[in-house]
Amino acid sequence: MNEEVIITCALTGAGDTVGRSPHVPVTPRQIAASAVEAAEAGAAVVHVHVRDPESGAPSRDPRLYAEVVERIKETGTDVVINLTAGMGGDLVIDPERPLRQLPGTDLVSGLDRLPHVEQLLPDICTLDCGSLNFGDGSNLYVSTPDMLRAGAKRIQELGVRPELEIFDTGQLWFAKQLHAEGLLDDPTVFQLCMGIPWGAPADAGVLASMVNMLPAGAQWASFALGRMQMPWVAQAILLGGNVRVGLEDNLYLSKGVKATNGQLVERAVSITELLGARVATPDQARARLGLAPRA
Results as ranks from 00 to 15, higher is better:
145 P>I: 03
146 D>T: 08
227 R>S: 09
192 L>K: 04
201 P>D: 14
221 A>Q: 12
219 Q>A: 12
159 G>F: 10
182 G>Q: 03
158 L>V: 13
182 G>F: 04
243 V>S: 07
185 D>S: 15
189 V>S: 00
233 V>G: 01
149 R>F: 00
172 L>K: 02
237 I>N: 00
222 S>T: 15
181 E>S: 08
165 E>H: 13
223 F>A: 06
203 D>T: 08
212 N>I: 01
179 H>S: 07
247 L>K: 03
185 D>Y: 04
156 Q>T: 11
233 V>Y: 04
213 M>A: 14
219 Q>M: 14
244 R>E: 13
172 L>T: 09
250 N>R: 05
238 L>G: 07
162 P>F: 09
244 R>W: 12
210 M>I: 08
179 H>V: 00
165 E>K: 09
211 V>P: 04
199 G>S: 08
167 F>E: 02
224 A>V: 05
193 C>E: 01
213 M>C: 14
150 A>G: 08
236 A>H: 09
247 L>Q: 05
239 L>V: 05
223 F>C: 01
228 M>H: 15
160 V>H: 08
221 A>N: 13
217 G>K: 09
180 A>C: 04
222 S>I: 06
202 A>I: 06
234 A>T: 13
210 M>L: 15
236 A>C: 11
184 L>A: 03
155 I>W: 05
174 F>I: 03
166 I>L: 00
179 H>L: 11
231 P>Y: 11
160 V>K: 02
224 A>K: 03
245 V>P: 00
214 L>W: 08
179 H>A: 09
166 I>P: 11
238 L>H: 08
171 Q>V: 06
232 W>I: 01
227 R>W: 11
153 K>M: 09
213 M>K: 15
209 S>V: 10
186 D>L: 09
148 L>K: 02
222 S>Y: 09
243 V>I: 11
174 F>Y: 15
209 S>P: 05
186 D>N: 12
191 Q>I: 07
206 V>S: 01
209 S>L: 12
161 R>C: 05
148 L>Y: 04
194 M>P: 04
228 M>K: 15
155 I>M: 14
150 A>E: 15
236 A>Y: 09
152 A>P: 05
229 Q>V: 11
237 I>F: 05
237 I>E: 01
151 G>V: 01
226 G>V: 02
200 A>K: 07
173 W>I: 06
151 G>K: 07
172 L>C: 10
183 L>R: 06
239 L>M: 14
232 W>L: 00
200 A>N: 09
182 G>Y: 08
229 Q>D: 15
205 G>P: 06
247 L>G: 05
195 G>Y: 06
177 Q>C: 09
209 S>G: 12
182 G>D: 01
170 G>R: 07
165 E>S: 12
164 L>D: 03
211 V>R: 00
241 G>Q: 03
238 L>A: 11
194 M>I: 00
183 L>K: 02
226 G>R: 15
248 E>A: 03
192 L>S: 01
214 L>P: 04
